[in-house]
């Protein structure tokens, strides 16, 4: 079975215990404006423009019929009208235009992951499935997780929580830790910023808590969105109400991600706003 991923990150030390390899899945039901991995939101592969690699030859602006590129000595990319035809990628002489997202089989992925096996074992690390929302490709996840468990590798799932509970139920036997994002407690604000309601997320959270599965809650601290004291206090209160001793990690905002929006020919609305 194949899945669509954007990136495999080795030596990942922020996504669960120890030294891990994190696999970023493409496709997410939420679209948070602060997303650190904007290339993982869309479920389709997308054109990425690496400006540092561009020599400004202007080839792309000549061939693109949808006007994605403007050229006056240097090239600029705007993906608003892009239909992901990929002709520009084929023609770019210096590989400054590349696909974000590639299909990979569970076998290939396992082969890549196993390379750092020694470091997982030494550090108590393993593999983290992240994204995007890995559960959007639940069958692929399941097959991969089963293979990982067969090898005795520790597994973690980094999830937005937005998926039918039966998906969780399916994969949970093969997952050691769930990194569960809770962003905003107020349903109205959650819907306003992430485009979906948080009721499914919170309900899933409650249910998983009952199973006693090891969980780490991750709260992104985004200035102007999630960082209000009342929001964080409410999240903490909500977590305390659940059974078990659940660890909380607060993830600081990383302004460097604005660059990733540029790669996609998009504008990072929240860094624009903070200007």
């Amino acid at each position: 079975m194949v899945g669509l991923i954007t990136h495999i990150q080795k030596f990942s030390v922020h996504d669960g215990p120890g030294i891990r390899t994190t696999v970023f899945f493409k496709g997410c039901p939420l679209s948070c404006p602060w997303c650190q991995n904007p290339e993982t939101i869309s479920s389709y592969r997308e054109v990425q423009f690496h400006s540092e690699q561009c020599v400004g030859c202007g080839m792309c602006s000549g061939i693109c019929s949808r006007g994605c590129f403007t050229w006056n000595g240097t090239t600029a990319f705007n993906s608003e009208n892009c239909n992901q035809c990929g002709i520009c990628i084929e023609r770019c002489p210096v590989n400054a235009l590349r696909w974000s997202g590639r299909l990979i089989s569970t076998g290939e992925l396992l082969h890549e992951i196993i390379k750092d096996r020694a470091y997982f074992d030494l550090s108590g690390g393993g593999v983290t499935l992240s994204g995007g929302e890995p559960l959007q490709q639940v069958e692929f996840c399941l097959e991969l997780l089963k293979k990982l468990k067969r090898q005795g590798i520790n597994t973690a799932l980094d999830t937005s929580g937005y998926a039918p509970y039966r998906f969780f139920k399916k994969i949970m036997p093969y997952v050691d830790i769930i990194l569960f994002d809770i962003k905003i407690m107020n349903e109205h604000l959650h819907k306003k910023y992430t485009k979906v309601s948080n009721s499914l997320i919170l309900e899933n959270f409650r249910q998983i808590c009952m199973t006693g599965k090891r969980m780490i809650v991750r709260i992104p601290i985004i200035p102007g969105y999630t960082d209000a004291q009342v929001n964080i206090a409410e999240i903490e209160k909500f977590i305390k109400q659940q059974p078990g001793n659940i660890q909380i990690e607060k993830i600081p905002f990383n302004p460097l991600m604005a660059k990733k929006y540029q790669l996609l020919g998009k504008i990072c609305s929240i860094s624009e706003r903070s200007k």
């Binding site: 030390v13 120890g18 030294i19 020694a118 470091y119 030494l122 550090s123």
Partner: peptide, 14 residues
């Protein structure tokens, strides 16, 4: 420190 220790051990193991 735990991370660095693992890198060092791993390097020696390899």
């Amino acid at each position: 420190a735990a991370i660095l220790k693992c890198i060092t051990r791993g390097f020696c193991l390899e």
